[in-house]
Design a binder for these strands. Sequence first.
DNA 1: TTGTAAGCGTTATCAA
DNA 2: TTGATAACGCTTACAA
Lengths: 340, 340
Amino acid sequence: MITMLDVAARAGVSKATVSRVLNGTGQVRKTTRDAVFNAMKELGYRPNFLAQSLANNRSNSIGLVVSNFDGPYFGRLLRRAATLIEASGKHLIVTNGYDTPERELEAVRLLADRRCDAILLYTRFMSEDTLMTLLAELPLMVINRYLPRAPERCVYFEQQQAAFSVVDYLIQQGHQQVACITGPINTPTAQARLAGYRQALQQQRLLVTDAQVIAGDNSVAGGYLACQHLLSRGVAFTALFASNDDMAIGAMQALRQAGKQLPEQVSVFGFDDEPCAAYLQPPLSTVYLPIDAMIEAAIMQAFRLIKGEVLPPLPAFIGELKLRSSVAAGPYRDNPLQSL
Amino acid sequence: MITMLDVAARAGVSKATVSRVLNGTGQVRKTTRDAVFNAMKELGYRPNFLAQSLANNRSNSIGLVVSNFDGPYFGRLLRRAATLIEASGKHLIVTNGYDTPERELEAVRLLADRRCDAILLYTRFMSEDTLMTLLAELPLMVINRYLPRAPERCVYFEQQQAAFSVVDYLIQQGHQQVACITGPINTPTAQARLAGYRQALQQQRLLVTDAQVIAGDNSVAGGYLACQHLLSRGVAFTALFASNDDMAIGAMQALRQAGKQLPEQVSVFGFDDEPCAAYLQPPLSTVYLPIDAMIEAAIMQAFRLIKGEVLPPLPAFIGELKLRSSVAAGPYRDNPLQSL
DNA sequence: TTGTAAGCGTTATCAA
DNA sequence: TTGATAACGCTTACAA
C-alpha cells in the first residue's frame, strides 16, 4: 500500500507537506504542490480513509438507517437522499434497522462508530425516550416520527390528516359504510392512518364497528386475504380504505373475485401513490406523499446541525389526494354528509 | 470519549490487557478479565471502530453497491443480503453506484477505502475489463453480469434463456405476432431479454421487424407510452412481451384504452414477478427470478473468498415461468409451431 | 513555506 | 499472565 510517506519521499518533501497539499490547508509553494501531485499520480496514491477519519474524528459521510428496506417508499427515499448527499460532496452509507427497536439502535451505533457527520434515522419501533437520548448525543435527524420535544429534529408526514381527508372525501361522495384495511398495527404509520379513518367517521357520527376494520401486513397478498376476511364477515361496505396501495391492489382482486363491480359497487382508496396506481383498472385513488421534499428537508437540516447553525422550524409535510376513478358516488350521493 | 486507556486505568491493568480481553486473544487470568469487563461496563466503554479497523486493516463489514436503488428487485436483494450478512456477525453497508461506470467505480472505491472484508457489486455499466481489474485487486463478487474469464466470481440470471422460454411459450400457445417492449437498451439485462425474444422468433423463422420492438425505460409510465407508440405504428400483434412487470402494467392499460380485450385480443407477458403481478386483472404471466438464492450464493462465495478457500463453481440461476391468465391462446392455437 | 513530532485509539510483538 | 512499546497512516500544533 502506498502511504503518504512514500509520496513524501518521491516528492522530496515531508509527510506534513503532502498532507497540506492533499487537504488544501496551509500555504504551499506552487512548485512543491505540483511535485506532490505528480508523486501522488505516479505512485497511484490513495489516502487511507480510516486513518484520515481516525485523525479527524469525522468521516465526511452521512449515515442512513432504513427499516428493513421495505415500506412503500424507501426506494424513492434512498434515491433522493443519495443524490442530494453526493451533490454536497459527502458520501451516503445505508444500513438496516430491521424491525426491532434493538436493531434500530444497533444500526445507529454502527453509523456513529464510523463517525458519520450526521445520521438520518427512519425508525418504526424505537421509543420516544430512546430517540430523545440519541438526539442529545448524536447529530441525528429522525424521519417518519414526530417528537413534540424536538420538532426541529424530525420530519414526518401528516399521516392522520391525510387519512382523514381520504375518508372525509369518501363520505362527501355519498359513502357511509367505509371499511378499512390497516397496516401492521404496531407501526406508527399504520396507527396514524387508522386514526385518521376513525376520526373522519366519528366526526360525522357514523358508526365505526370493529368488524369494518381489519389488519393487513402492507403486502399485496395480505390485502387480498384481509379483504376476503372482511367479505366473509358479512359486513356491508360501499367503500374501502386501504392503508397502502399494495393492499388496495390485493383487495381489489378479492373484490372482483367476489363478484363486486369496481368502482360501482365498491369504491377503493389507497395510500402512497405507487407508480402503478394510475395504471390499474380502475385507476386507483390514493395519497401522494412528498417524499423528495421531506428527505431533502431532513438532509438540509442535518447539514445545519453539522455546521452548528441554529435550526429553523421544519414545515409540515402533507399528503395530496390523487382522485382517480376507483371511487364512484356512493348510495348517499344525493344527500351526502358535508365535510366539517 | 472513553478510551481503552481509561478502562485500563480503572481496571488497574495495561491497555494491552484490555485489548486482549476485548478480542479474546491471548491468555488472561479470569479475575483480571472480570475486572476489565467491569471497568468497561462502568465507564460505558465503546471500542473506537475506526482505530480498530486501521490497526487491523479490516472492518468486519461487507459492502454492497447497487444501481441507483432502482431496478425491479433491489428491495428483495437488499433485505436478503442484510439478513444473511448480519447472521454471520458482519455488518452490511450499502452505497449507490448511480448509473454511470465512473460512479460505480467510485462506489467500489468508497467501500474498499473502508476496508470492507468483501464487496458485492451490482453493476450495469462497468466494462468487463474494469471488472476484471477490480476482481484481481479486491475481494469482490459481481452480481448481474457474466464474466467468462471469472465465472466463479459472478452470479447472474440466465436472462436470455428465460426470455426465450417466454416467447417460445407464446408461440406454442398459437401466437406468431409477438411485440416487445424492451428496457433501457444500454443495460445488459434489457439486452439479454431482447436477445431471448429475438432468438425464440428466429428459431421458428418468424419475422422480427423493428416495428414490433420498442424501447421502454422500465417504468410503468414508460410501458404505457411505449405501448401507445406501438399501437400507433399500426403493427399487428396478438401477444406482447414486456421486459419487466412495471412496463407490462403500463402497457395493459394502454391496450385497454385502445379497446383491446385482455387477454382475448392481446396476451401479455411480463418479467420479474413483482408481488402485485398475480393480483392484476388479468393476472400477469411473468418470470420469477430466484433472487434470494442468487444473492445467497454470492455472499457464501464472498465468505470463501475472504477465508482464502478455493472457489467452487457457481450454479446457474434460471428464471421460472409463472403462467397466469394474461396469456390466452393465439390465432394459431390449433396449429402452433412446436417448441424446438 | 516547510519539517519535526506528538497525537488519534487501536493491535500485536517481544520481554519480563 | 502481563506490560512496554512500536506499528497502523493520517492531521496538526509548533518550530525553524
